[in-house]
Design a protein around this nucleic acid. Sequence first.
RNA 1: GGGGACGUAGUUCAGUUGGUUAGAACGCUGCCCUGUCACGGCAGAGGCCGCGGGUUCGAGUCCCGUCGUCCCCGCCA
Length: 602
Amino acid sequence: MKLDFLGNLRRTHTCGELRAANDGQQVILMGWVNRRRDLGSLIFVDLRDRTGFTQVVFNAEQNKSLHAKASDLRSEFVVAVKGAVKKRDGNTINKNVPTGEIEVVASELLLLNESKTPPFSPSDDANSTVSNEETRLKYRYIDLRRPQMQANIELRHKVALAIRNDLSQRGFFEIETPFMTRSTPEGARDYLVPSRVHPGQFYALPQSPQLFKQILMISGFDKYFQIVRCFRDEDLRADRQPEFTQIDLEMTFPQQDRVFEVVEGFLTAAFKAAGHELKTPFPRMTYDEAIAQYGSDKPDLRLPAMTDVREAFTPDQLATLQINPSLPVVCVRTPKVGELSRKERDDLKTLVAAKAGIKTIDDLKRLEKSFPDTVSKVREKCGAQADDFLLLVVGAADANIKPAALSSAAGSWRLALAQKFADKHKAFERTGKVDTDYRWLWVTDFPMFEYDDESKRWVAAHHPFTSPHEKDLIAGRLESDPGAVRALAYDAVLNGIEMASGSIRIHQQEIQRQIFKAMGIEREEAQQRFGFFLDALEYGTPPHGGIAMGLDRLVMVLAGGESLREVIPFPKTAQAKDLMVDAPTPVSDEQLQQLGISLKRK
RNA sequence: GGGGACGUAGUUCAGUUGGUUAGAACGCUGCCCUGUCACGGCAGAGGCCGCGGGUUCGAGUCCCGUCGUCCCCGCCA
């Protein structure tokens, strides 16, 4: 087929903007053939670009050769059309599309490019028969033409732009930090980049610009931010990609509240860009409260909290039911589930993996026969409505577990039940109201350390540069009871998703030394791993702190998506592969040789 | 590293107890059609049933292995 060149031809309008008011105008549109409806001597073509589509008409009676050219058009051909906007007659108006009041009567057609028949059509969107993800990812360039994906990527742009503008107005500088940097093994695995100039040595891609941004504070930049790619070589999830984008920021002389103000500020701007008005300040909750009430450090507030109903039981009843009286009796309430059959209750048993020392009671009706007063107290305590499903998560009589472990198990049940019965309680459905659809929360006062059973040592819960609470730095506690030391660390949580994580940092060398010591990191080891940073700390480091928010996750929630892949143009699969470019791949022996790398054969 | 679901036409899927020539819809190709907009009508093409092995007279169907995609646990300071 003979193709035309673009020449000097220029669009007068996009495919989504013509209206009845444009009636009679000569226009030039360019785009893709979304659909073709060939009625013989009358051909309709929906011409699509990212703004929408416009119906173009070719009439054999008016122009035979033009009509003949149009009859060769197929899906996804790229064309330019010259023509006149014509207001449609009453019964031919299409009320379902914004441009439905008009059509363009073509007088000239340029065939700019043809297209193979795509494996799936971007216009399939309307039929909701979207291809499986494997096909979508392989042909990502076609997938991205779908209106939904175009909208998601546009939303991402608008959100990022609003955040940039907001932070800039607050006096933050966007400053770039290196992608090729130093491996600081602690936390996630690094992606490594071999050095050709220094055979046997490696750069690492940053898991976050953490130390660089702290050094920027030491350098006096006062307020820094960056919308920046970060890399972690860990297994993927629907909400985890090996490379992801963070809104990273840091400021000098802040209290935790100053950081919260900044975040709530840029989120207000971001939500506004997405068409939502956000209510600030966000509610707050300590880590301990979150664990006790929600069994999670990232509570989803769209569903009720858990309740400790131990007081509803008498000591005799606890003994009879073989419930450990020293542990909470946690009631998990899932609204509007209604009556469950014996079989449905049995099916629940596999919902959460069994844990030693923890049991559940799912049949309150039966319990009520033996202990009517107790059950009515339980219902009252957790504010149950008649059709709410109540599950008791309790410690077995001989259980040797901590209350937090029980709460955390109950939290798993709370989430699993919430997901299973989402159709019934409808708490996850969009209502159009920002304060019910988007439940933000600050979780504060995380513990400074967590005990790692594998390495048998205390490790930083956030990272080792996080400042402990001043009050918890009483003599000897770092050594005697590290688990009781709280950190000035905080998370922003949205609908049960961890969106941001930050802290006030350590700015005093002496405290930093104590923290490393508590973690069993010797001075030499610390010097070897973070020496450059510890050196920097000694040259007039101001108090500083900040936070990093996941842009992908933020846009995912705003787009109503279930997976980061819906808001990342070129994402990776669960096996960390890019199906479009087919990466990773082996490299040539020559490349390896230059890098001084030899591969171990399996 | 572990658990689960899935893999059949270009796409989305059906395929009964193992039994003739593996089906449907959409898409595609050709012909017809002047008001369609998920256009319509007629005709047609299109299959390594993911791959390898096994059981069987006979396997899309059963078994073992393997590869791929998705979800979850571990992991993710």
